[in-house]
Each structure stands twice: as C-alpha cells, then as structure tokens.
Design a binder for these strands. Structure first.
Length: 805
RNA sequence: GCCGGUGUGGCGGAAUUGGCAGACGCCAGGGACUUAAAAUCCCUUGUUGGAAACAGCGUACCGGUUCGAGCCCGGUCACCGGCACCA
C-alpha cells in the first residue's frame, strides 16, 4: 500500500465539500466554539507561506473542538478592498472588481488545497455589495450617533498613494504600506470619534484573554495620562490653557510654548510686534513632513512672541511665550507651561533661548541638566505652599489648590487620535453621505443602501487630492434626500479597515438581507472565542474593530461588549537566512510547491512543527523532509500493525501519556511539542510493535494535523465502516491518569547536588526505598564510604539528593 | 530615550515553571539492504581529555539565593519588536 498523498488529498477534499462535515449550525444545542483567523487580503501573488501558519493552527484547534463535541464556527472570507488591487488594475487596465474575483478564486483553491475545515457556505467578500451594504449601514449609525463627523484638519498625506492615512498607518513618519514620505496636509476628512471610547478600550482589556503583549501595546497606543489643565492669564486678554502631568512644578514654569498651529497665534496677530517673524516660522513648520518634524535629537527651534506675555498663576510673575514645533497641536491643548529645571526638552529650549531655570524639586544640578525624577519621592523647594512636600504629595495638593482658585482641574489625556476615515481612492466602500448646499451633510436613507461603487473610466488617483469618483459627475450630482434640491455625493471612500471592523459578525449569518446578522445568530455565536492574528494589527484592525463593536453594543446591535474573548498571535515565517521573505530577495516560498512535492498534510504538519508558534522562525526546505518521513512512518505502521482491535498493554502508558500531552498542547497552542509527542509515540510503536487498536488512537490524535491521510487510513483499516463515521466526526480520545504511569521509574541520584547515577525503582517509592536502592549502587556506595548521610531530599519519581559529609 | 520580548549543540527547537539540560526533528558521520542509486532500517552525534571505564566543563556575561538554578534575585552585554518632542 503506497502513501499516494496527491490522490488521497484530492479525494477527501472532494468528500468534505460534498458532505459538509464542518458546517456550523446556528442554534444547535451543543456548546458553541467560534474560532477565527484574520481573513486574507487576496493579493495577486496568491497565498504566501506565512498564511498557513495561523490558518493551520486554528484549523487544528477547531477540528479538535468538533471532536470534543462543540458546534464549531470556523469561517473564511476575503478582505478584498484595497490599494494593491487598485494599483494593479490601473497598471493593467482591468477593473478592480475583475482582479478581485480572480484573486479570490486563486486564494480559495489554495485554501482548499490545504484541507482547512472551513464552513465554505459562509464565505464572505468585503467588496460584495450585499456585504458592504452593512458596512455603510454601520457608518450611518455612527453618523446618527454623532461619532462620524467631517472636519478640516492637518492630516497625514502619503505622497505616493496620493491618499490620507490614519495615524495608525504612519510608521516612523512614512506610509506603512508603501514606505513613502508622509506630509501634513490640510484637508476636509471624515473622522470617527474613537477617542470617545479611549477609556473603555483600556478598561475592558481587563475582561478579555489576550496575550499580554497585545494588551500592553494597545494601552500604550491609547496612551492615557492623568494630569491637570491650568489656565494662564495673558497680557493679550485671553486665558491660555495648558495640560501638564506635573502641576507640582508650577512654581518652576518660567515660560510657555504654543504649537505653531495654535489658534491664538493668529488671534494675537495685532498684539504680536514681531508677527512677520512668527508667521515665517509657522509657515516653515507647516511645510515640514512628519518625518522632519519628529526627527530625533533635532535642535530645538522657536520664536518668541514679542508683545504678549503670560502670568504664572501661582506667583503672578510675567513670563514669555514662544512658539515651537516641539509642542504638538494635536495633543493636550496644543500649549504647554515650560519647566526647564525638570523637563529635558524645556531645559534644552531654555538654554538655547536664555530662559530662566528655577529648581523646584531638590536633588539635581539644574544648571547642568534637567532633573527628571524616575520616582515621585523628590522634595519640593522654591514652591511656596508646596515646600517640603514630596512630589507625590505636591501633585494632589496643587490640583486641589487650582480647583479652589478656579484656574485648573484634573484632566485625563490620551495619545489616541480620532480615526481619519476617508480615502481619496476608488477601490473602497462609498461613504453614503450627500452634501446639500442648504442642508449640509445628509445621510442616505437606509433604503438606498447599498450605495454602489460606480464604474469609472479611470481609477487613477488625482494630484489634487480628490477621489477618482469626483470625476463621475453623473454619480456625484444627486438630489438631497432631505430637501430634494440638487446636491453632491461624498466622493472619498472608506479605508480598508472598514470592512474588517465587523466581518466576524457577518460570518454568523452571512446571507441575511434584512440585518447585518440576525439577533439569534448574534446571541448564539458571540463572542468570538478565539481569534488569532498578526501583531501588526494590534493598533490597527484589532483596535478599530473593538471600537466598532463597542459602538454596536451601545446601540443594541450586538450582545457583548467585546468582540473577541481570546487573542493570540503568531510569529512571522522568515526566509532561509532569517531574513524577511520578499520578492526582491527571491526567498519567497510558495505553499503550492511544498504541497506538490510532499502533500498538504506534510505542509500542515511541518508548518506547525517548525518552532514556537509565537516566535518568528526561518523556513527550511530541508527540514520539511522530517515531517514527510513521520507521515510515511505512520502510514507504514498502519500497514503492518497486528489485527488486534484492543490497545496493547505494552503501549497503554505511552498512548495515555500522549493523549494527555497532545490534548493540552493543542489548547496551549504548542503544536510543535504535540507533534514531537506523537513522533515519540510512533517511535515506541515501532520499538514495541503495535495493534490496530493502538493505531486507532494514533489516527484520532493525528487527525487534526494530517486530516487527509488519517481519513484514508481510517477508511482502509475499516474504522469508518465500524463506526459509521469519518475520523473527524469521532469523539476526541481522553486519557486515564492512572494509566499514564509506568510500573517503575528511573530516578536521578545526586550526591551533594551533583548527578552521579540513575536507579530504577517502583513508581511512588518512599524515601527509604529510594535511598536503599541508591546506596545499593556500587558507585554511590563508594562515594558514601566513610561518610555520613546528613540529609536526604526526595522529589518523588524524579530524583533523590544525598548530602554526604 | 521609554515599554515589551528573546539569548540553550552545526541548525529549528524541548525542559510538567526550582529537580537527570539538549526531548522531537534537520544536518553530518558510520553501518545494513542494493549491481548501483534513491527510499528504508540500525548505530553515533553538546564539548574537552581518554583506547575505554571514566573525569572535567557546559543554557550570553559577572555575582547572589538554594541541598539543587536554563528557570528566582542584583548587575552587565547583545539582538528583535512596538512607541517616540504626548508636556
């Protein structure tokens, strides 16, 4: 009997497609399990070897859950709107919808080739109008609830994509997608008020089971800090409000700084005597890219506002006001009080511009460097009523004083910004809003959804920063839904993150044309029990979708506060040299090649065996052989086992141990050690000989990993006929703890903590027995000769440590 | 700079969280089968000394706690990831 993987895999994939053993049943009385993987972007290159890692892991988990009696929802779909498709379409003059269709077709067949147990009847595609109808619907709800708004503000503009980017899409000052320069551009944009949810996005992390680094990264990104807002009177008449986390240092505030974009700069035009100089600086700052502005160790620049001064509220002193680009208009109030003695940036600026430096916390030499405390035990000086207090005491004292005086109050700030939601590109969901000269922005009525993406002549982005849709005058010009007058549609589209922000809900009820999903389906399947995805989405997709979900919860659409109960993350697959796989390096591994050469089961097994799931790992074509060899050995074992249908006594312990290990390892996402345990078991079977009953247990344990081969053997060995079920429909094996123990154990014998020998003793031997057995060893007897046993440490069934003097 | 993470054979990686370091696999070497090769099977494989029994040294580095440390504590170095003028 030959292991003809190509024939076997094709055969079983066909059977699974026809018999649908992996269909999820809404409302079933079994406990439910919803396992989710991040749906792929159907790129033109097809499946990358990185895809099968998370997909296979979740497939294994879901297959095991089904065998454990769960009603499992394990769906697949395509996140198909996006720039690469659009760019490809532009270059090759094909409509992006056609390109998308082709790419999806390719992805689908590749996914099927790997034997994943998806419920194929629930497949979704974010570019399908039946899908994006509901993406648009959610947008309308956001608008209705005041969470979507249009605002003109400086935004990140990618010079190459010719498109705005969300804050989350700018990495080190460049576009996360194409790596091109990002500049600041004043544009009118649709925004989503994610900041309103900042606190809840932090708080509710406590209730979910995400790996810690995901929680930490999200918390850092949201960037909560507690401080105070304080009003400084100015000679211009307006009070200048600042945010500080260190109100205890107010007595050391010797000047103030405004961001160049701060509205007071323009407002005070007439009072600023050097306005020309100020204006020149503002202008210069406006033309700098994000990258230039955030350049490290850049020397501080700025201009003093002559003619206007501020008054420090704690001591009535007049202090100068500057503008400088080291103060960000987007954070806090866009203005700061500068305490050069205790802030490095302020210190540097003060030294350059000759500002006064007043020490208010003892401990450093503020003429040499800013004294910034790591802890808050420093003692206040030169600070009037705060003198002698620790920083820790001074902060609440000052906050209280500010509140009493009515010039300040406690305030929490977040680094998180509202989500810039419009894109000046074609291949995205149209935003269902109409601008009417009389009524302003008017939402489309729900009955008009989906608002279809029209066919256009050209998808080229424009240099003016307008969407390609803006050239479609027939489409753009419309009637105002409110007053019936002539109006114009919004021509920007939604970002790629829109469709993926709620797709896991659609899987629950993918064909519903009345609602995004039925109440029943949402109640039954929510929340996603286990979501695995990439770390790169932690502050993008994962955060965005939590935000949308919380909103949908607030308006009563979904039953849970959080979309995902558990989140894990896989490491990247690197090229052979440990470098990132890329076309330019020529080290990209195509899963098809591996499947052609070794089969899908080997591919699946190997990608799981290759290393710690959470860590990056280099791909090795050589090492794949080991996984194939193992499957060959399993195949041959089934071929040559004894006919006995019972588990053989010789293999009973190893079988029960392996069941225990594989079961817990899959739950812990340690597929590599689960496979190692299966290999060990097979090695023992070869050494001991095995029965058909032993092989049956092996097949069940192996079935989530190598499902095609297992089903074939299951059938060939007559188990399918015997039970009337496929292996994937069998109950998962359970272990009997008492049967995992062997009659005797080998224990380590240490003398004074050093390993000297090993000894075979009956399992659970007491100290006396073990010591006696150890002393009976010639070597130990020799070492003990003339010495006294002063102490014995026994670790049952593991080791004995004899302290000899 | 701040926040995380990781350092174990030639390589990928194990080690039930304080109890025989190197499971499992790859590579390599030797052998069997074969006319031959592939495949398969068996053996060896951390390192140093030794023919061997055996002995010494070994989990990035230095120190500590402990009968016992890859694991805990203090310090140092290196690499990876995230954030970065956030007041």
């Amino acid at each position: 009997m030959k292991y003809d993987f190509a024939r076997i895999e094709q055969k079983w994939q066909k059977i699974w497609m026809e018999q649908k053993p992996f269909a999820a049943v809404t409302g079933d009385s079994r406990p439910k399990f919803y396992g989710l993987i991040e749906f792929p972007y159907p790129s033109g290159q097809g499946l990358h070897v990185g895809h099968p890692r998370p997909f296979t892991a979740m497939d294994i988990i879901c297959r095991k859950k089904r065998m454990e009696g769960y009603n499992v929802l394990f769906p697949i779909g395509y996140d198909a709107f996006g720039l690469p498709t659009e760019n490809y379409a532009i270059k090759n003059h094909i409509h992006p919808a056609i390109v998308t269709k082709q790419n999806i077709q390719r992805f689908r067949s590749q996914l099927q080739m790997l034997g994943y147990s998806f419920d194929w009847d629930r497949e979704i595609d974010t570019t399908d109008p039946n899908y994006y109808k509901w993406t648009q619907w959610i947008f309308l709800k956001l608008w209705e609830n005041g969470l979507a708004y249009k605002a003109t503000m400086p935004v990140n503009w990618c010079t190459s994509c010719k498109c705005v980017l969300a804050n989350e899409e700018v990495v080190n000052g460049v576009c996360e997608r194409c790596g091109s320069e990002v500049i600041r551009k004043e544009k009118s944009q649709w925004m989503l008020r994610i900041t309103k949810y900042a606190q809840r996005l932090i708080d509710d992390l406590d209730d979910v089971d995400y790996i810690e680094r995901v929680k930490i990264q999200q918390r850092n990104w949201i960037g909560r800090s507690t401080g105070a807002e304080v009003d400084f009177q100015t000679t211009a008449g307006d009070a200048l409000r600042i945010f500080t986390t260190r109100c205890d240092t107010l007595f050391g505030a010797t000047y103030m700084v405004l961001a160049p974009e701060h509205p007071y700069v323009k407002k005070w035009k007439d009072q600023i005597t050097n306005y020309a100089e100020v204006e020149a600086y503002v202008d210069e700052a406006a033309h700098k890219s994000d990258f230039e502005r955030s350049e490290l160790n850049k020397e501080k620049t700025g201009v003093k506002l002559e003619g206007v001064r501020a008054i420090n509220p704690v001591n009535g002193k007049e202090i100068p006001i500057f503008i400088s680009d080291y103060v960000l208009v987007t954070y806090g109030t866009g203005a700061i009080m500068a305490v050069p003695a205790h802030d490095e940036r302020d210190w540097e600026f003060a030294k350059k511009f000759g500002c006064e430096i007043i020490e208010v916390v003892k401990g450093g030499d503020v003429e040499k460097a800013a004294f910034t405390l790591k802890d808050d035990t420093g003692i206040m000086v030169n600070s009037g009523f705060l003198d002698g207090l620790t920083v820790k005491e001074a902060i609440p004292t000052m906050t209280k004083w500010l509140e009493e005086q009515g010039i300040g109050k406690e305030k929490v700030n977040y680094k998180l910004r509202d989500w810039v939601f419009s894109r000046q590109r074609y291949w995205g969901e149209p935003i269902p809003m109409v601008h009417c000269p009389k009524c302003g922005w008017v939402p489309l009525p729900e009955s008009e959804l989906p608002l279809l993406l029209p066919n256009v002549e050209s998808y080229e982005p424009t240099d003016t920063g307008e969407s390609p849709l803006s050239k479609m005058t027939d489409w753009v010009n419309c009637k105002c839904p409110k007053c019936g007058g002539s109006a114009q549609r919004e021509t920007d589209t939604m970002p790629q993150w829109a469709g993926s922000s709620w797709y896991f809900l659609r899987y629950m009820d993918p064909h519903n044309d009345k609602e995004l999903a039925s109440k029943e389906a949402l109640e039954y399947w929510s929340p996603v029990d286990w979501y695995n995805g990439g770390m790169e989405h932690t502050t993008l997709h994962l955060l965005y979708s939590r935000f949308w979900h919380k909103f949908l919860y607030d308006i009563g659409v979904v039953p849970t506060k959080e979309p995902y109960q558990k989140r894990t993350s896989h490491g990247m697959i690197l090229g052979e040299g440990g470098e990132k796989m890329s076309k330019s390096r020529g080290n990209v591994v195509n899963p098809n090649d591996i499947v052609d050469q070794y089969g899908a089961d080997t591919m699946r097994l190997h990608i799981m065996f290759i290393g710690d799931f959470e860590k990056a790992v280099s791909w090795s074509n050589e090492a794949v052989k080991g996984s194939k060899r193992f499957l060959d050995r399993c195949w041959n074992l089934a071929d040559q086992c004894a006919d006995d249908e019972a588990i053989s006594p010789r293999n009973e312990a190893i079988i029960h141990k392996t069941i225990k290990k594989v079961t817990s390892d899959i739950d812990d996402l340690k597929m590599n050690t689960a496979i190692a345990a299966l290999m060990t078991m097979v090695n023992e079977f070869y050494a001991n000989g095995c029965t058909k009953g032993d092989v049956e247990q092996l097949l069940l344990l192996l079935s989530p990993f190598a499902p095609h081969m297992v089903e074939e053997l299951w059938e060939v060995k007559g188990f399918a006929a015997k039970y009337g079920k496929m292996a994937c429909q069998m109950p998962w094996p359970t272990h009997d703890e008492s049967k995992t123990v062997e009659a005797t154990v080998e224990m380590a014998v240490q003398v004074c903590g050093k390993l000297k020998a090993t000894v075979q003793v009956p399992t659970d031997s007491d100290q006396e027995t073990v010591v006696a057995a150890a002393m009976a060893l010639e070597k130990i007897a020799k070492l003990a000769d003339g010495k006294q046993l002063v102490k014995t440490i026994l670790v049952p069934n593991k080791l004995v440590n004899l302290i000899l003097r």
